[in-house]
Design a protein around this nucleic acid. Structure first.
Lengths: 169, 169
DNA sequence: CTTGGAAAGTCAACAAGGCTGACTTAAAAT
DNA sequence: ATTTTAAGTCAGCCTTGTTGACTTTCCAAG
């Protein structure tokens, strides 16, 4: 199409940012993200939960005691949407919601024992794939992977990511 | 790059695959994918289309004349799901469906003029972000990025990706 | 101390986009 | 002639996102 005849050996340019190269990156993201979510999705099916539940569980595990509002900000959904997910997790005894001591309007969220078990199951599966990919690609590739991903985020998302990254390191 | 722990410091270990490192990779994928889809999503809102339409348009543009069945395989959804999306695109005159000449059961899909215009608008936005990320990270990082993504795919998806990649290069 | 506003939760309604199952039509393959 | 395949359609369901309207709780500022 627009490509194909851009130049003999289009890989020779310093930045090699042809539409072709960029398109390959776009498609790689698409297919890789499918792989990234495939294992947890399979596990969640058995529990009658979806990806939204996984995300909530992940970030509650990651920041125990987080408030609903801050979880909202990280997940980037509406409170009504999160509330539906959270309610089922609380009803099912996977998440505990404790009224704040300093500010009693706030609810602090924690995983219960069973919640932590599911979290472990999910993250073990996801880490196993990530570990395999890292091993196959090697340390240098991993550093590049992380750099590009970080550069691809919106500034807001990047700030949140870096806060989580540095705080949790 | 700031310190995620990947650089010099912990970067000397051969595998450096702590749960912490893996978790950061997982969260980076989550936030980066949001950024990855943000620009097209904004454009699609104005056209009353969704991500599913974008994916169909992308792969029809990428492989003009592709059949419904092969599009199904690439997208990884059911034909009922794809059909709903395809029907609206055909009704709206963005996609044309031609009966196959060799095999009249098949329908070959093409973008129309207006379809190509929308495709261009969407892919321009997505490429702009990808280009910026690539520029910020540099050529070596990009190579690593692609390696890790490819290793993260399911074998089936990887085969499809490589076919697209090599065929379209 | 009253009141304004923030935080949280709830209800209702809706849409996109997945899914399954059942079924038709047309054409190719056996 | 029969079976299989490609495509399309209809109906119904689920998850997960959205708005909008509303209540309850409670901190904090006037």
């Amino acid at each position: 199409m627009a490509e194909g005849g851009i130049g003999p050996g289009s890989g020779e340019t310093l930045l090699f940012l042809t539409d072709e190269q960029l398109r390959k990156g776009i498609e790689a993201m698409f297919f890789a993200y499918r792989g990234f979510t495939a294992d947890p999705d399979r596990i969640l099916e058995n529990h009658a939960y979806g990806r939204a539940h996984h995300r909530a569980i992940h970030f509650i595990h990651r920041s125990p005691g987080t408030t609903v509002n801050s979880l909202l900000a990280v997940l980037g959904v509406t409170k009504q949407s999160l509330n539906r997910v959270l309610r089922t997790l609380i009803e099912d005894g996977l998440v505990e919601s404790r009224v704040g001591r300093r500010d009693k309007r706030e609810r602090h969220l924690f995983l219960t024992g069973p919640g932590a078990v599911l979290e472990r199951e999910l993250s073990d599966a996801q880490r196993a794939r990530m570990r395999a990919a890292y091993r196959a690609a090697g340390p240098a590739a991993v550093a590049g992977f992380r750099q590009v991903l970080e550069a691809m985020m919106d500034p807001e998302q990047r700030a949140q990511f870096q806060q989580l990254r540095d705080g949790g390191a």
